[in-house]
Amino acid sequence: MTDPETILIEVLRWHPDTPEAPWWQSYEVPYRADATLLEALQTIKDDLDGTLTFRWSCRMAICGSCGCMVNGRPELSCHLLLRDLAPGPVRLEPLAHFPVIRDLVIDQQDFLDKLPAVGAYLVPAEETEAAAAAPAAPSRQTPAQMADYYQYAQCINCLLCYSACPQYGLKPDFLGPAALALMARHDADSRDHGQAGRRAARDADTGVWDCTLVGHCTEVCPQGVDPARAINRNKTASARDYVFDLLLPGRRR
């Protein structure tokens, strides 16, 4: 097969000055087998249409800023090669379920507001007796203990999983895959003592219980985080606590 000269890229565009009229715009972009989709977008911006707006930074799938819907699936545009999309056309839309600021740029504020609620930081054992006996002792961890949360700790906050989650789209208050995976990541860390503080968020409807295990979050995650597992294991934990609290009154709340 000979390589095509160009590849057709269609972008769903929106500009705040014409809020009623999102429009599809097509670009014939020079094709290179080793070019990424992000490079094609940069070519459009540099050579064809300077008004096209999109986010990017690292170009190597680690900053998490270049996410968009590619043929209906959330992807990092820097993580896709044109040769895997040929012969096209390639349909690009802003990440689903988020408010659009302009073209492919979405507003991540909702996620940033939810992050603090899940306690996504290690809580040291300040109050425990062991810590009092040996103040400022280093928190040691074996590789086996690290393996329990390592996968969850790979999140780059790219929000692809939120765009893959219909429950987030239907119920915007849902804390969502990445935030709940970070909750599980810190719960599973042997150095952490903050589980109790994360429970209220976990046990709420907007915590793990808005999830129906669609599972697409895990399929689209570029980092192999597996938010579906993080959330649904916490459903079991939340249900266990619910039953114990019901049977042993005074245990909690």
Partner: peptide, 16 residues
Amino acid sequence: MNARFRRSHEPLFWLL
């Protein structure tokens, strides 16, 4: 930070 979270009764139905 926890005031906005009310405990869900979903576990009951989810277990069934």
